[in-house]
Amino acid sequence: MGGYWSGILAILAINVIFAYGIFLPVATGQLNLGGAGFQAVGAYAAAYMSYTYDWPVALTLILAMVVTGGIGFAVAFPILRLRGVYLVLGTFAFAEVVAGLILNSETLGGAIGLPVPAFVDYEVPVVLAALVTLFVFYLMATRFGLVMRAVHDDEVVSDLMGVSLRGVKVAAFAVGAGLCGLAGGLYAHTFTYVEIQAFNALVSINVLLFVLLGGTQTAFGPLIGAAFFTLLPEALRVLLPQLQASVASLFGAAGDMRAPDDSWRFVILGCVTVLMMVFRPEGLVTRTLVERFKPRRRSGLAAAEASA
């Protein structure tokens, strides 16, 4: 496999794990706009142990996940007291605090960053992404997953049904943070270098977009969202020059030989985002859509009615 495609596959796999990390709190109705912060914690935890103590990758990844999950757990208690847009701002602020702390930390390389000696090829993120996907599908099939979705739909009624709102939200937030940390650790070992600029606000916004546009009602959503938004820019990278050339030739001009202007990709990406929000506000994959593709399980009564 070419380096280009294996690179994209690695990014896709990391984004899928990252998206599931944000999906879990979002599926309970908690928007998390601090994705980059959690990813940075995981990335720097892995990078630091790999760089300073030469830890093997398996250990750095576990550490990245546990440390980030632990921080997510600790942060969840104060931060989940916030609601709606205040929660969004609170998680966003968390990511800014993380970035600020890392930027000012000598040990973590400050503005320069840290090299990561251990490189992992695309297989590792791909296998881990598959495992994480299975894990989230499993989780969503349990009563815990049921309760997560219930809390998303109606907190008052969930509470009256005996659901611990706090417990469900904190658990989803912390486990999600752990997954963001794993995505960060994989990022560190895939790019073999971490610098805090890579974990900026745009990253947090993008991953939340993956999740919201993919759909938050089923575990298919983040998978589709991450795939779509990782591959679309790449497709545009290839298609855009051709598009520009054909538009140019339409006006009789010679094909535009300039390197494709990166900003146009964002324009198209932005338009696609707006269109999806207008036409599929609940995300690409909704519960109703999934049900439509499932084989109908006819019960006795339904069968009797049908034959009558």
């Binding site: 049921l146 979705r149 739909d153 109606d154 969930s158 049904m161 659901v163």
Partner: peptide, 19 residues
């Protein structure tokens, strides 16, 4: 009606069992 709109009928009932 305060059913969970995104859950199936059976899932809504199973939520009732939560306690």
């Amino acid at each position: 009606i305060r059913l969970m709109p995104h859950l199936s009928v059976t899932e809504n009932i199973m939520l009732g069992q939560q306690a």
